[in-house]
Protein backbone atom coordinates (compact mmCIF):
# COMPACT_ATOMS: atom_id res chain seq x y z
CA UNK A 1 0.00 0.00 0.00
CA UNK A 2 2.90 2.33 0.80
CA UNK A 3 4.18 1.80 -2.74
CA UNK A 4 0.83 2.87 -4.16
CA UNK A 5 0.80 6.09 -2.16
CA UNK A 6 4.39 6.80 -3.15
CA UNK A 7 3.40 6.21 -6.75
CA UNK A 8 0.49 8.60 -6.34
CA UNK A 9 2.75 11.25 -4.84
CA UNK A 10 5.13 10.96 -7.78
CA UNK A 11 2.35 10.83 -10.34
CA UNK A 12 0.11 13.63 -9.06
CA UNK A 13 2.35 16.62 -9.91
CA UNK A 14 2.34 15.52 -13.53
CA UNK A 15 -1.38 15.19 -13.76
CA UNK A 16 -3.00 18.37 -14.94
CA UNK A 17 -6.03 19.15 -12.81
CA UNK A 18 -7.61 21.60 -15.18
CA UNK A 19 -11.31 21.94 -15.65
CA UNK A 20 -10.99 20.79 -19.28
CA UNK A 21 -9.70 17.35 -18.31
CA UNK A 22 -12.34 14.67 -18.55
CA UNK A 23 -13.46 13.14 -15.28
CA UNK A 24 -11.93 9.64 -15.14
CA UNK A 25 -14.82 8.34 -13.03
CA UNK A 26 -17.32 9.58 -15.60
CA UNK A 27 -15.34 7.86 -18.36
CA UNK A 28 -15.30 4.63 -16.38
CA UNK A 29 -19.04 4.97 -15.70
CA UNK A 30 -19.66 5.30 -19.45
CA UNK A 31 -17.47 2.26 -20.00
CA UNK A 32 -19.37 0.32 -17.32
CA UNK A 33 -22.71 1.24 -18.89
CA UNK A 34 -21.57 -0.16 -22.23
CA UNK A 35 -19.84 -3.25 -20.92
CA UNK A 36 -22.48 -4.15 -18.35
CA UNK A 37 -25.24 -3.89 -20.95
CA UNK A 38 -24.02 -7.32 -21.99
CA UNK A 39 -25.52 -9.77 -19.53
CA UNK A 40 -24.35 -12.88 -21.23
CA UNK A 41 -22.86 -14.02 -24.49
CA UNK A 42 -21.68 -17.01 -26.41
CA UNK A 43 -18.91 -16.64 -28.97
CA UNK A 44 -16.69 -18.79 -31.15
CA UNK A 45 -13.01 -18.22 -30.47
CA UNK A 46 -9.82 -18.95 -32.31
CA UNK A 47 -6.69 -19.15 -30.17
CA UNK A 48 -3.15 -18.72 -31.38
CA UNK A 49 -0.41 -19.20 -28.80
CA UNK A 50 2.87 -17.47 -29.54
CA UNK A 51 5.25 -18.52 -26.80
CA UNK A 52 8.82 -19.39 -27.74
CA UNK A 53 8.88 -22.84 -26.20
CA UNK A 54 5.32 -23.85 -27.04
CA UNK A 55 4.37 -25.22 -30.44
CA UNK A 56 0.67 -25.38 -30.87
CA UNK A 57 -1.59 -25.09 -33.88
CA UNK A 58 -4.45 -22.61 -33.93
CA UNK A 59 -7.22 -23.92 -31.70
CA UNK A 60 -10.94 -23.39 -31.72
CA UNK A 61 -13.46 -23.27 -28.89
CA UNK A 62 -16.75 -21.80 -27.84
CA UNK A 63 -16.75 -19.37 -24.95
CA UNK A 64 -19.73 -18.69 -22.69
CA UNK A 65 -19.93 -15.69 -20.38
CA UNK A 66 -22.59 -14.63 -17.92
CA UNK A 67 -22.53 -11.79 -15.45
CA UNK A 68 -21.10 -11.29 -12.99
CA UNK A 69 -18.17 -13.66 -13.40
CA UNK A 70 -19.17 -16.92 -15.04
CA UNK A 71 -16.92 -18.11 -17.85
CA UNK A 72 -16.92 -21.45 -19.59
CA UNK A 73 -15.01 -22.83 -22.56
CA UNK A 74 -16.02 -25.79 -24.64
CA UNK A 75 -13.85 -27.46 -27.23
CA UNK A 76 -13.19 -30.86 -28.72
CA UNK A 77 -9.52 -29.91 -28.81
CA UNK A 78 -6.98 -29.29 -26.07
CA UNK A 79 -6.83 -25.55 -25.55
CA UNK A 80 -4.62 -23.24 -23.55
CA UNK A 81 -5.76 -19.77 -22.59
CA UNK A 82 -3.79 -17.20 -20.65
CA UNK A 83 -5.12 -16.86 -17.12
CA UNK A 84 -4.39 -13.17 -17.35
CA UNK A 85 -7.15 -11.68 -19.40
CA UNK A 86 -9.71 -14.38 -18.73
CA UNK A 87 -9.96 -13.92 -14.99
CA UNK A 88 -12.59 -11.19 -14.85
CA UNK A 89 -10.02 -8.52 -14.04
CA UNK A 90 -12.35 -5.67 -15.02
CA UNK A 91 -15.12 -6.83 -12.73
CA UNK A 92 -12.63 -7.47 -9.95
CA UNK A 93 -11.26 -3.95 -10.23
CA UNK A 94 -14.58 -2.18 -10.72
CA UNK A 95 -16.40 -4.06 -7.99
CA UNK A 96 -13.85 -2.98 -5.37
CA UNK A 97 -12.92 0.55 -4.30
CA UNK A 98 -10.42 2.15 -6.65
CA UNK A 99 -8.78 5.46 -7.44
CA UNK A 100 -8.82 6.64 -11.03
CA UNK A 101 -6.49 9.27 -12.47
CA UNK A 102 -6.82 10.77 -15.91
CA UNK A 103 -3.28 11.13 -17.30
CA UNK A 104 -3.97 12.49 -20.77
CA UNK A 105 -4.36 11.05 -24.21
CA UNK A 106 -2.28 8.75 -26.39
CA UNK A 107 -2.58 7.55 -29.95
CA UNK A 108 -3.16 3.87 -30.60
CA UNK A 109 -3.33 2.84 -34.26
CA UNK A 110 -3.75 6.48 -35.24
CA UNK A 111 -6.67 7.12 -32.90
CA UNK A 112 -6.58 9.24 -29.75
CA UNK A 113 -7.41 7.40 -26.57
CA UNK A 114 -8.03 8.53 -23.01
CA UNK A 115 -5.44 7.12 -20.65
CA UNK A 116 -6.61 6.38 -17.15
CA UNK A 117 -4.58 4.95 -14.30
CA UNK A 118 -6.54 2.80 -11.90
CA UNK A 119 -5.28 1.99 -8.45
CA UNK A 120 -7.35 -0.75 -6.83
CA UNK A 121 -7.86 0.04 -3.17
CA UNK A 122 -9.35 -3.29 -2.13
CA UNK A 123 -7.82 -5.67 0.36
CA UNK A 124 -4.64 -7.15 -1.19
CA UNK A 125 -5.68 -6.69 -4.81
CA UNK A 126 -3.95 -8.93 -7.33
CA UNK A 127 -3.50 -6.02 -9.72
CA UNK A 128 -1.71 -3.16 -8.00
CA UNK A 129 -1.85 -0.71 -10.87
CA UNK A 130 -3.79 -0.78 -14.11
CA UNK A 131 -3.65 1.56 -17.05
CA UNK A 132 -6.62 1.65 -19.39
CA UNK A 133 -6.73 3.24 -22.81
CA UNK A 134 -10.34 4.11 -23.59
CA UNK A 135 -11.79 5.19 -26.93
CA UNK A 136 -13.43 8.62 -26.37
CA UNK A 137 -16.09 7.94 -29.03
CA UNK A 138 -17.19 4.46 -28.07
CA UNK A 139 -16.07 4.33 -24.43
CA UNK A 140 -14.64 0.89 -25.00
CA UNK A 141 -11.25 -0.25 -23.74
CA UNK A 142 -8.65 -0.58 -26.48
CA UNK A 143 -5.70 -1.48 -24.29
CA UNK A 144 -4.98 -2.39 -20.70
CA UNK A 145 -1.69 -2.72 -18.93
CA UNK A 146 -1.83 -4.43 -15.57
CA UNK A 147 0.94 -4.63 -13.03
CA UNK A 148 0.28 -7.58 -10.79
CA UNK A 149 1.46 -8.26 -7.30
CA UNK A 150 3.49 -11.35 -8.18
CA UNK A 151 2.90 -12.29 -11.81
CA UNK A 152 4.59 -9.46 -13.65
CA UNK A 153 2.98 -7.14 -16.14
CA UNK A 154 0.54 -8.06 -18.86
CA UNK A 155 -0.90 -6.02 -21.67
CA UNK A 156 -4.12 -6.72 -23.52
CA UNK A 157 -4.99 -5.06 -26.82
CA UNK A 158 -8.56 -5.12 -28.05
CA UNK A 159 -9.98 -4.63 -31.52
CA UNK A 160 -13.64 -3.95 -32.18
CA UNK A 161 -14.59 -4.60 -35.77
CA UNK A 162 -18.28 -5.39 -35.42
CA UNK A 163 -20.30 -2.17 -35.29
CA UNK A 164 -22.91 -2.08 -32.57
CA UNK A 165 -21.27 -4.81 -30.54
CA UNK A 166 -19.56 -3.77 -27.33
CA UNK A 167 -17.33 -6.81 -27.34
CA UNK A 168 -13.95 -7.28 -29.02
CA UNK A 169 -13.40 -9.18 -32.23
CA UNK A 170 -9.74 -9.63 -31.47
CA UNK A 171 -7.72 -9.65 -28.29
CA UNK A 172 -3.95 -9.90 -27.93
CA UNK A 173 -2.62 -10.82 -24.53
CA UNK A 174 1.09 -10.12 -24.00
CA UNK A 175 2.48 -11.49 -20.77
CA UNK A 176 5.56 -12.65 -18.96
CA UNK A 177 5.87 -16.32 -18.32
CA UNK A 178 8.12 -17.40 -15.52
CA UNK A 179 10.82 -20.03 -15.64
CA UNK A 180 9.38 -23.30 -16.78
CA UNK A 181 10.73 -26.58 -15.47
CA UNK A 182 9.00 -29.33 -17.34
CA UNK A 183 10.52 -32.75 -16.66
CA UNK A 184 12.35 -33.07 -19.96
CA UNK A 185 13.33 -36.68 -19.52
CA UNK A 186 9.81 -37.66 -18.71
CA UNK A 187 8.53 -37.64 -22.22
CA UNK A 188 10.50 -37.60 -25.36
CA UNK A 189 13.92 -37.98 -26.81
CA UNK A 190 16.68 -35.84 -25.48
CA UNK A 191 19.73 -37.82 -26.54
CA UNK A 192 21.11 -36.45 -29.76
CA UNK A 193 18.89 -33.41 -29.64
CA UNK A 194 20.14 -30.03 -28.68
CA UNK A 195 18.09 -28.71 -25.81
CA UNK A 196 17.78 -24.99 -26.28
CA UNK A 197 18.04 -23.94 -22.65
CA UNK A 198 17.16 -20.37 -23.50
CA UNK A 199 13.79 -21.61 -24.64
CA UNK A 200 13.07 -23.45 -21.44
CA UNK A 201 14.55 -21.28 -18.70
CA UNK A 202 14.14 -17.75 -17.50
CA UNK A 203 11.48 -15.15 -18.03
CA UNK A 204 9.81 -15.38 -21.40
CA UNK A 205 7.41 -13.03 -23.05
CA UNK A 206 4.46 -14.70 -24.65
CA UNK A 207 1.53 -13.58 -26.71
CA UNK A 208 -1.82 -15.17 -27.21
CA UNK A 209 -4.05 -13.96 -30.01
CA UNK A 210 -7.74 -14.61 -29.56
CA UNK A 211 -10.16 -13.92 -32.37
CA UNK A 212 -13.87 -13.78 -31.59
CA UNK A 213 -16.63 -14.42 -34.08
CA UNK A 214 -20.32 -15.22 -34.21
CA UNK A 215 -21.36 -13.41 -31.02
CA UNK A 216 -24.72 -14.39 -29.57
CA UNK A 217 -25.41 -11.68 -26.98
CA UNK A 218 -28.02 -11.56 -24.19
CA UNK A 219 -29.71 -14.81 -25.09
CA UNK A 220 -30.10 -15.94 -21.47
CA UNK A 221 -27.51 -18.67 -21.28
CA UNK A 222 -28.52 -21.50 -18.97
CA UNK A 223 -26.52 -21.55 -15.70
CA UNK A 224 -26.11 -25.29 -16.10
CA UNK A 225 -23.51 -24.73 -18.82
CA UNK A 226 -21.17 -23.16 -16.26
CA UNK A 227 -21.65 -25.94 -13.75
CA UNK A 228 -20.10 -28.59 -15.92
CA UNK A 229 -16.52 -29.73 -15.35
CA UNK A 230 -14.22 -26.91 -14.27
CA UNK A 231 -10.85 -26.14 -15.82
CA UNK A 232 -7.77 -27.68 -14.27
Amino acid sequence: MLKIWLYLLILLPFVGFTQNDPDPYAIIDSLKTRVFSVHDYQVDIEIEVDVDFINMPVKHATMFYKQPDKIKFKSDEFIMLPKKGFDNQFQKILNEPYNAIYTGTEDISGKTQYVIKIIPMGKKPEIILATWWIDPDTYLITRTESNTRDQGTFVIDFKYDEPGIELPTEMTVSFEIEKISIPLKFIGKTAGMEIDKSKMDGKQTGRVYIRFSNYRINQSIDDQIFEEEEPE
Binding site: S75, F78, M80, L81, P82, K84, F86, I177, E178
Partner: peptide, 11 residues
Protein backbone atom coordinates in the same frame (compact mmCIF):
# COMPACT_ATOMS: atom_id res chain seq x y z
CA UNK B 1 4.39 -24.68 -14.48
CA UNK B 2 2.29 -24.13 -17.56
CA UNK B 3 -0.90 -24.20 -15.53
CA UNK B 4 0.35 -21.21 -13.52
CA UNK B 5 0.04 -19.11 -16.66
CA UNK B 6 -2.63 -20.91 -18.64
CA UNK B 7 -6.05 -22.38 -18.22
CA UNK B 8 -5.87 -25.78 -19.84
CA UNK B 9 -8.98 -27.46 -21.13
CA UNK B 10 -9.17 -30.86 -22.75
CA UNK B 11 -7.98 -34.37 -22.17
Amino acid sequence: NLSDAFFMYGN
